[in-house]
């Protein structure tokens, strides 16, 4: 495998960078080269954040190109579509959290937030394979909305299991290494719940 690309899109505070590092550690443990390119706006919180995750034998710089993402982890629907339309390849996999985070442009009435149906339809037009759900809700049920990112990771790992260059166990080891001690158990649970979800999910 020359390279495998994952685009992670969301807003600040959703744990985007943590996800990219967990995936990076898992790839590193398999002796692969890793480049994580993160871009966020000026804001500490709430701004658009996306990470380029590049793993493989032939990766040098941190950027992937248009239509080069094998997978998109969309932690927020609008941000997912914003990066998905640019980076997700035809036939690529999109894991979409449907919980919206509004923007100031929408709030003050100079722009309109598209409906979830429109967003899903757009992914279909872009020929993506799409898994969507309110994963924040699942995270809340486990104990905290902050676990949403790891739920999404679990879902992704379940669907993409066979195409990934590392195992579930590698990901779990990475979670243990990256998450503060007192949060490890909950995060592993969130991962498992996401994984189970994926096994019962029927892609339409």
């Amino acid at each position: 495998m020359r390279y495998y690309h994952i685009m992670i899109a969301g807003v600040g505070g959703q744990g985007n960078l943590l996800l990219s590092r967990i995936i990076g550690d898992a790839a590193l443990s398999k002796g692969l080269r890793v480049r994580l390119g993160e871009t966020f706006g000026a804001a500490q919180r709430g701004g658009s954040v996306h990470s380029h995750v590049r793993i493989g034998k032939e990766v040098y710089g941190p950027l992937m190109l248009e239509d080069e993402a094998d997978a998109l982890l969309a932690l927020e629907p609008l941000e997912g579509l914003r990066r998905g339309v640019q980076y997700l390849k035809e036939g690529g996999l999109a894991i979409l959290n449907t919980r919206k985070v509004s923007s100031i442009d929408v709030n003050v009435g100079v722009a309109e937030y598209p409906s979830i149906e429109e967003i899903i339809e757009s992914f279909r037009k872009l020929k993506a394979r799409i898994v969507y759900h309110d994963f924040t809700k699942i995270a809340e049920e486990i104990g905290s909305p902050r676990l949403m990112n790891v739920v999404v990771l679990g879902v992704f790992a379940g669907i993409a299991e066979r195409e990934l260059p590392f195992t579930l166990e590698d990901l779990k080891t990475a979670i243990r290494g990256r998450v503060p001690q007192r949060w490890v158990e909950l995060n592993l649970r969130a991962f498992d719940v996401g994984y189970e979800f994926s096994k019962n999910y029927i892609m339409k």
């Binding site: 807003v11 706006g41 000026a42 804001a43 500490q44 919180r45 709430g46 701004g47 658009s48 609008l78 941000e79 579509l81 914003r82 339309v85 923007s103 100031i104 442009d105 929408v106 722009a111 309109e112 937030y113 598209p114 429109e118 967003i119 757009s122």
Partner: peptide, 10 residues
């Protein structure tokens, strides 16, 4: 259909 997301304070 992609609405912009301007930077905001917390």
């Amino acid at each position: 259909i992609i609405a912009p997301r301007s930077s905001m304070m917390c």
